[in-house]
Design a protein around this nucleic acid. Structure first.
Length: 422
RNA sequence: GUGGAUGUAGCUCAGUGGUAGAGCACUGGAUUGUGGCUCCAGGUGUCGCGGGUUCAAUCCCCGUCAUUCACCCCA
């Protein structure tokens, strides 16, 4: 085979696409009930947008960008959706139009990583962004929304991890404290962690390297460095989640890899289905300074992104049963034309219809009807046409009736809508 | 970027230093126009690619590419 899909980018075949559609449909329904409206943006942005928002020190920006040079422009395939939405929010002067804006998006994202189960170079995210409300109630409402969404889908083994990273002030102070703590024991850290000490020491905390885990054991906790306001916010979030009855775990070492988070951050992990080690299906948090940093007003925001591939892995088989099918098996050209006409009439009335106009044997057509799980088969040959009838067969019961052509739609539709015929 | 595993029929996979197999799927027949069960018949392979060892390599060795899992990181 000469051409194949490029590394880490997968074709989504119809069976799989159906599962995507199902999850996307539930997602849309759920977030739209909470007032989110869809935003569609290009998948290509100026590279600089991601430098300014996602962050220079994030791994995503440092080495996972697909960059496109085009003349004087330097563009990038988006690695996440939040910066684009923020760009639109600012470009539209959205804060001047309404005090609170709620948007959601669904679409492909791109990161140049080594692919593995649950991690691809092109993958799909569904996410929400809420602008204009700094209070912890919106954090709680959003997290609860996600909890309900995943439970309604039937996802098992979900854990909601919550933490507060504090505001810029608290985090700067905490960074300094962490450096003070780690610097004397620098040699005990992993090579990677030693490099992180300079730019982003917080990341050492969620390292899985045994050396780093050991070294972090008595490290100062970020939660202890929070300002009074940060603490009040986090307490408010927890009180609201408790009131809602939303289960969650405070995870003081939860540190996310994107630079822009302030105060609340959260992550949802799953341990069911085929999901491998990449078990974070969703991540998000508050980013109160991004809009201002990108040149907009001082508008607080919170959001999350959900990995559709990972959700589907964790979910296993989902989706509604395919609709009942009527299968036409015409024999001969004249019968073929009659089948086309009858099939079109049935489709106009909402039925799913397959017409097998091949030259092959009736046997092969019925075999196909069987493998397609058709509920009804219509056999139409010369002898039927002469008499103005068709053979209508109930595939499940093997019963077959001769039906006048003018009664065909009614008979087929009643068979298709009948319950318990399978 | 790092480490391991795997590349044989459309799919899932056996297999042997001496010209390559099964199951599933597909097609035809048993049933001149009736599917799911059963029986019979039918076809396909540069054995990932390149090089080496050998009288002979799909098998052994080296390289390479691809896939995959894991680390890192993240959804």
């Amino acid at each position: 085979m000469k051409y194949r899909a490029v590394k880490g980018m997968n074709d989504i075949l119809p069976e799989e696409a159906r599962r995507f559609q199902f999850v996307e449909g539930v997602f849309r329904a759920e977030v739209e009930k909470a007032g989110y409206r869809e935003l569609r943006t290009p998948i290509v942005e100026e590279l600089a947008l991601f430098h300014k928002s996602t962050g220079e020190t994030s791994e995503v920006v440092q080495k996972q960008m697909f960059v496109l040079e085009r003349g004087r422009e330097t563009l990038a395939l988006r690695p996440e959706g939040t910066p684009s939405a923020a760009r639109v929010y600012i470009g539209q002067s959205q804060w001047a139009k309404e005090p609170i804006t709620k948007w959601y998006y669904i679409g492909p994202m791109f990161r140049a990583e080594q692919p593995q189960r649950g991690r691809y170079r092109q993958f799909h995210q569904a996410g929400c962004e809420l602008y204009g409300d700094p209070g912890p109630l919106s954090d709680a409402e959003l997290i609860d929304l996600l909890y309900r969404f995943t439970t309604n889908l039937g996802l098992k083994g979900v854990t909601i991890h919550v933490n507060s990273l504090g505001g810029a002030e608290a985090r700067e102070a905490y960074r300094a404290r962490l450096r003070e703590y780690f610097e004397p024991i620098r040699a005990e850290l992993s090579e990677h962690a030693q490099a992180r000490l300079g730019d982003n020491p917080l990341r050492i905390l969620d390292s899985k390297d045994p050396r780093d885990i050991e070294a972090s054991k008595s490290a100062p906790l970020l939660l202890d460095s929070l300002t009074e306001d940060d603490k009040a916010h986090f307490d408010g979030l927890r009180a609201a989640l408790d009131a809602l009855g939303t289960p969650y775990k405070v995870d003081p070492k939860l540190v996310r890899g994107l630079d822009y988070y302030t105060r609340t951050c959260f992550e949802l992990t799953a341990d069911s289905g085929e999901i491998g080690s990449q078990n974070a299906i969703l991540g998000g948090g508050r980013y109160n300074s991004m809009i201002r940093d990108l040149g907009g007003e001082d508008v607080p925001a919170i959001g999350f992104a959900l990995g559709l591939e990972r959700l589907l892995l964790a979910l296993g088989d989902v989706g509604p049963a395919p609709p009942p099918l009527c299968f036409f098996a015409p024999l001969g050209g004249q019968a073929g034309r009659a089948a086309l006409k009858a099939g079109a009439a049935l489709r106009a009335r909402g039925a799913h219809v397959e017409i097998d106009g091949r030259d092959g044997s009736l046997k092969s057509k019925l075999r196909r009807a069987g493998s397609m799980n058709a509920r009804v088969a219509v056999v139409l040959g010369d002898s039927e046409l002469e008499r103005g009838v068709a053979q209508v067969k109930n595939m499940a019961s093997h019963e077959q009736f001769e039906v006048p052509l003018e009664e065909l739609p009614e008979r087929v539709l009643s068979l298709l809508s009948a319950e318990g015929q399978a």
